[in-house]
Computed example of a mutant assay.
Amino acid sequence: MFDSRRLRTFHEVVTTGSFTAAANSLGFTQPAVTQQIRALEREAGVLLFTRAGRRVVLTEAGHALARHSTVILRDMRHAQQQLQALARLRADRVRVCAFPSITATLIPETLAALLAEHPTLRVELHEAEPPESMRRLMAGECDIALSFSYPGAPADLPPEVAEDNLLEDSLVALLPSGHPLTRRRGVRLAALREARWVAGCPRCRAHFLTICAEAGFEPDIVFATDDNLALQSLVAAGVGIAVAPSLVLSFLNHRQVTGRVLEPHVRRRISAHVLREHEHLPAIETVLRGLRSAAAARGGC
């Protein structure tokens, strides 16, 4: 069994290319790094490095250990993060990672209800678009990841993650007030083929290009932003029009912007994701119930 501290030192030498650089990175002395590597070689029973001038070169055995050390140290880091997460969850502290339009709508509604019923519960909110939120969940950096998906998108959910479908959210066209199509209840995407467009986040942008192609045109995208408030301001200023989730209508700040449902209806699915080994912990179950209740009030899944 290798000593984890020696394995980390070995990995740092491999990464930096020298004992001296590894010592500077780790805050050790160079002789201390040398001592750690010599002890690891005694544990392994083989030489891991040979000298090449001022640099060190991996032996064949060193290359083999380098491949394994990357995986071992990553798994150890993830294990430590998950154990820390369990400790937080048992203390009623839950970290939620969510995307902007849900943090401005479903999250506040959920937290208001939860805190009234569970005053000791503490929720820490982080903002990230999918798939970054899923990466954070898998890395142990959050406990619940809220994400969205569009019809036809590939299902790439890891087996260790449980999914809870919360809500289906229609897409709307954001138009500047006074636009002729604001007089209609719904807007056909094909009727906007000549418009200039402001596009949203990369995931939404990719889906937008797909539905435009299905409608028979390529949109003229003049600006792109991940910021919902900036998107509204750009539409209000006449820079272009945009497609956005209907949740945005709940915090539409510009009187000069009007939302109209796209026809035919296009929807995205909003889901909560947790690690299967955590989904029945009381703090997780409490927050998930709160999310389901808030989503149901909005006509959720």
Rank of each mutant, 00 (worst) to 15 (best):
A230Y: 04
R184T: 14
E263I: 13
I241E: 09
R260L: 02
P245S: 10
R196C: 06
F223R: 13
I221W: 07
R267M: 07
E194G: 01
A153P: 00
I211T: 11
E163W: 02
R203N: 06
P264W: 03
D164P: 00
P158R: 13
E168P: 02
L229H: 11
D220L: 02
G240A: 04
T225N: 09
A162R: 09
I211K: 10
N165K: 13
C201H: 10
A155Q: 11
A155F: 12
R267T: 06
N228W: 14
R255I: 03
P202G: 05
A236V: 08
I270V: 15
S246W: 02
V248S: 07
G186A: 15
V248A: 11
E263K: 13
H179C: 00
R196H: 09
A173P: 07
Q232C: 11
S250R: 12
E160R: 13
P219G: 03
P264A: 03
H207M: 08
A242E: 08
Q256G: 07
V198Q: 08
R188K: 15
I270H: 03
S177E: 12
G240R: 03
T258P: 01
P154V: 09
T258G: 05
R193Y: 07
V266Y: 09
L249E: 15
L209D: 01
A199E: 00
N253Y: 13
L171W: 02
G178L: 05
V248T: 12
D220A: 04
N253S: 14
T182W: 00
D227M: 07
A237S: 15
V172N: 07
A224E: 15
W197Y: 11
L166K: 05
V261I: 14
T210E: 13
T258M: 14
P202C: 04
P154C: 10
D226T: 10
L175D: 10
